[in-house]
């Protein structure tokens, strides 16, 4: 097994007694592409904002630890955390157009990012930025560098944002719904750009999305989050092909296919913030729920060497 890059242990994040992430444990290897799926509000964005130490005001990490390549991220001073951000780990957010400053050129964005981490001449920095974009198949990098964000299309902005995040060659890129605002054709470009990052620069990618198609396509490992916890985790083919948790099964069944309309939707909604159930958080919506599900919290169990699920039910994974 390759070296461990990121380790999250029993992480709890919340605000005034309400827990959003409820004791999550996760680890990533160097160069791994890990995808996290789940409904809106399941805590996936909060999770990656905790890793990058940029939680929204009011939110705080109440317990647990996050280590990155042996460094205790939660123990870092804010200046040391800043030095790490962008240089060794970085984040790409979903609204590329808003994530860039409209009154400054793309080139200035690259410059200020590079100058924040290393001493570098303007010319050299811009040439490096252009080379990076060219290596990611962005055409005419010089023109892009001289452009303002509003002069580029939404998809182009998203791809620029990914290149911008990678300019210091960080070992870990966190991607928060990086394709959700894009149409299908541009989505594919953004996804292949991210895959190229891993091939060329060996970057590990933690991608958070509700788009299962994107996950199935690019992730090696897939995690499914529900109500602030991982409910299923494992190798892509195992989780996508033989989903064990009823929530994962329902999520996959709900993906609309090209022939028809939406298929089976999941009835009900996740527990609201602060609502604490004694048993499994999914049990009120689960068609297989039994008495034990309502009273005891399920732990992640090993189903096969590369496949874990947090469910009391002892049935064999469904073949889909």
């Amino acid at each position: 097994m390759a070296e461990e890059l990121l380790k999250i242990t029993d992480l709890k994040v919340g605000t005034r007694g309400l827990e959003i992430v409820k004791g999550l444990t996760l680890s990533m290897r160097k160069g791994e592409i890990l995808g996290l799926a789940g409904e809106s509000g399941c805590g996936k964005s909060t999770l990656i904002k905790s890793v990058i130490r940029l939680l929204a005001p009011g939110l705080a990490i109440t317990s647990g630890s996050i280590t990155f390549d042996g460094i205790d991220l939660l123990g870092l001073s804010s200046e040391n955390a800043r030095k790490l951000r962008g240089r060794r780990l970085t984040l790409v957010s979903q609204n590329a157009v808003e994530a860039l400053n409209d009154t400054r050129t793309i080139g200035s964005h690259f410059l200020e990012t590079m100058k924040s981490h290393v001493k570098i001449e303007k010319k050299k920095a811009l040439r490096e930025a252009a080379d990076l974009m060219a290596s990611l198949d962005l055409s005419d990098p010089e023109r892009i560098l001289a452009s303002y964000p509003f002069e580029l299309s939404g998809g182009m902005n998203q791809r620029v944002l990914i290149a911008l995040a990678m300019v210091m060659r960080p070992e870990l890129m966190l991607a928060d719904e990086p394709t959700s605002a894009l149409d299908a054709a541009v989505q594919a470009q953004a996804v292949s750009e991210m895959i190229k990052l891993r091939e060329k620069y060996g970057a590990a990618i933690l991608i958070v999305t509700h788009n299962l198609g994107v996950l199935a396509h690019m992730a090696e490992t897939v995690g499914v989050m529900y109500s602030g916890l991982l409910v299923e985790y494992g190798q892509n083919q195992a989780v996508m092909g033989r989903p064990a948790h009823p929530y994962t099964q329902a999520l996959i069944a709900a993906v609309p296919d090209l022939q028809g309309q939406m298929k089976d939707t999941i009835e009900g909604s996740p527990p609201s913030l602060g609502e604490i159930l004694p048993g499994c958080d999914f049990s009120p919506r689960c068609q297989f729920a039994q008495e034990v599900c309502q009273n005891v919290k399920p732990e992640l169990r090993k189903l096969s060497p590369d496949h874990y699920a947090a469910c009391h039910l002892d049935f064999k994974p469904l073949d889909s």
Partner: peptide, 19 residues
């Protein structure tokens, strides 16, 4: 959001503020 985006890239706070 661009302020947040710049912070995510580790851009120095003085660049974010003044430029």
């Amino acid at each position: 959001e661009y302020v947040w985006g710049a912070r995510a890239r580790g851009v120095k706070e003085k660049y974010i503020l003044y430029r």
